[in-house]
């Protein structure tokens, strides 16, 4: 954003003509981004504790390549270079936290380049992207290196009953249920940031309290998950896992707190947020129960991202003072 002073220094003086909103909440983009980065600290700590210090290299690689790609593309396109607004760093960090432990660093770099290049800058940069950039990078890696990205390592404090498979895969293929306390703490196989539900919740609640994350999206996702997976559980508890397991296992909470709540790619109306959250959980339940993959948070968020413009359109509030449209 250019300030008025900067504008005046240019030869032609002009007014900044933009559409609404005109009110500023006092939160600049970079302040928000650095707060979200801060909220991820517990998850990073959990990842280092459970999977070892090597994971810091994955995180650093992802962040450096994300910021570097952003700067490079902005340089080539002769745009203002926004190194330090933290949004590219956040994309890199989120991407790193969705990767499996001990993931190859070169593939991590590719993921970051794709996330920023194809997920964000190709649409015109921050604010213009349709899909969550970190998830675009993750989806690309999933399709490009399907074997490496589903190769999990055992967590450091694994007891014998804990296998290197993720809890969801263990249930899908062997009908093995991981106990909820392991899931909450994070002492299970899985992606870096997703295993510790507790760490995710600490960061997520912090973001809700400071007002960056709107509570409606995570809450509607959790309610939706409880409801939709509960139906299947009531039909056959042997065949389908309990709603509590579904919520705590895999990257559901991480997705609900950090991925689905991305400002750019989620609806702006309150009603829209409810539709969005419930939609994600419905798609997710369908993928987890009927699909070939054990996990589907990434795809369900990406799919609902695509519906966001439509949700915004159909949940547009009535203009103040306008009459209700008469039905023809």
């Amino acid at each position: 954003m250019e300030t008025l002073a900067q504008t005046e220094t240019k030869q032609k003086v002009y007014f900044d003509l933009t559409t609404s909103p005109h009110l500023h909440s006092g939160w600049s983009t970079s302040k928000v981004m650095w707060f979200v980065n801060l909220a991820l600290a517990p998850s990073i700590a959990a990842a280092l504790v459970f999977f070892g210090l090597y994971q810091i290299l994955i995180i650093l690689t992802a962040v450096i390549f994300a910021v570097g790609t952003e700067a490079l593309i902005q340089f080539i396109r002769k745009k203002e270079i926004t190194w330090f607004d933290g949004s590219a760093a956040l994309t890199g960090l989120l991407l790193a936290l969705t990767l499996p432990p001990n993931f190859s660093l070169s593939a991590t770099a590719i993921g970051s380049i794709v996330a920023i290049g194809l997920g964000k800058q190709i649409f015109g940069g921050i604010g213009y992207n349709i899909f969550n950039p970190a998830l675009v990078g993750r989806a690309f890696l999933q399709a490009a290196f399907p074997v490496q990205i589903t190769t999990w390592t055992k967590p450091n404090f694994a007891v014998d009953s804990v296998s290197s498979a993720t809890p969801l895969a263990a249930f899908k293929f062997d009908k093995f249920i991981t106990d909820t306390s392991s899931l909450a703490l994070g002492n299970v196989g899985g992606s870096l940031g997703e295993t510790s539900a507790l760490a995710v919740l600490i960061g997520g609640i912090f973001l809700i309290v400071v007002g960056i994350v709107n509570w409606r999206i995570p809450v509607s996702m959790i309610i939706g998950m409880f409801f939709f997976s509960g139906i299947f559980w009531l039909i056959n508890p042997q065949q389908y896992p309990s709603p509590v397991f579904q919520i705590f296992a895999g990257s559901f909470l991480f997705g609900a707190m950090f991925m689905a709540t991305d400002w750019v790619t989620s609806p702006i109306t309150n009603k829209g947020m409810w539709i969005f959250g419930l939609g994600i959980s419905l798609v997710l339940v369908v993928i987890r129960i009927f699909g070939g993959l054990p996990e589907g948070v990434m795809y369900s968020i990406l799919i609902m991202n695509a519906f966001v413009p439509m949700i915004n359109r159909f949940t547009r509030p009535r203009t103040f003072g306008a009459l209700k449209e008469e039905k023809k």
Binding site: A107, A143, Q148
Partner: peptide, 15 residues
């Protein structure tokens, strides 16, 4: 060089 499987999948054609 680890081959990028996505390139020989339909998604790779579009990209």
């Amino acid at each position: 060089f680890e081959p990028w499987l996505i390139m020989i999948l339909p998604a790779g054609a579009f990209l």
